[in-house]
Design a protein around this nucleic acid. Structure first.
Lengths: 159, 159
DNA sequence: TGTATATAGTTTATATATGAACAATTTAAC
DNA sequence: GTTAAATTGTTCATATATAAACTATATACA
């Protein structure tokens, strides 16, 4: 269905660039809403799962990542990570361990409970991703990523 | 730059479908951050501008839209609209007018101040959209929208 | 060595988002 | 025509996001 129909707009878009941009925006919103429902059933949020995915795939089994590294890998503000890790620590999914080499730094590590939860969630999430991106071949996906990469470059170009 | 580089990840993605999905997600995040900075300089937020854009383009000059209509056109919860319109009303950008035909309904209309602000912001926003989507021809944009539309259809398909 | 600067994390104020429960009102069903 | 169901908007609890101001620490450099 076209975006105009999905949003029940009375009038369409006069500029196709704008329509394309809103298509990206509302597709992300839809993907996020779908993921929200999925993770809620597991007692998680999409953002919390993302933290666990980074801890699992981007650090050694017992290494963990600092809050600054998480902030960088998630493209969010440091302040955001503080409250996010507060909630995850309260839920028993991760712990903060102080870094002996740099006393400013907290290393975030998954607990046994967190690991168990992640191992249960990940294959189900992979299926959801498969269903979401169903019907495209590798070349179409590469083309899509190239377009999106170019848009991200446009954003970062000085006006 | 590839997403792996932008997020400073140590390891890449093993599933291209997942990589493509994260590309959509982080492109939206980048676009939103860019727009946030732009609107902040005008004393607005991206969401507040979107409300004004809907009021301007989707309703007659003095008709306005109900909160339920705004909720539908923005794909957000009704509760969200309540607080959003509270803030916009407080800022003098819009007013709530009760609907004589249905006493449950509030009609949201732009004030003179809101209209003035919107007319100043819209051409600047159009330029930003042009820069963001620069370097694609109409056929590439249509192809992109078709891909995104298919993803939205995949999401809404029953598992 | 000392000082200036940078970095890590927290706190606060603010904006956006959801779902659930609620009141007021309208519409549908019988 | 009255009752049941649906719709509109609000309030509350909660999760995520930012920027700015702050403390504590580490690094650079002169």
């Amino acid at each position: 269905m076209s975006l105009k129909e999905e949003l029940k707009l009375k009038k369409g878009f006069s500029i196709v660039e704008h329509e394309a941009l809103l298509n990206i925006y509302f597709t992300t919103a839809g993907v996020k809403k779908r993921a929200d429902g999925f993770f809620k059933a597991l007692g998680l949020t999409d953002v919390q799962f993302n933290v666990m995915m980074l801890l699992h795939h981007q650090s050694g089994p017992d290494e963990g990542l600092s809050q600054a590294q998480l902030s960088e890998m998630m493209l969010v503000n440091r302040a955001n990570i503080t409250t996010l890790i507060d909630r995850m620590e309260k839920a028993g999914l991760v712990v903060r361990v102080s870094d002996s080499a740099d006393r400013r730094t907290n290393i975030v590590k998954m607990t046994a409970k967190g690991k168990k939860m992640f191992e249960k969630a990940e294959p189900l999430y992979a299926k959801l991703v498969g269903r979401t991106m169903f019907g495209f071949n590798q070349s179409e996906l590469k083309k899509l990523m190239a377009v999106l990469e170019k848009i991200r470059e446009n954003i970062n170009k000085p006006a």
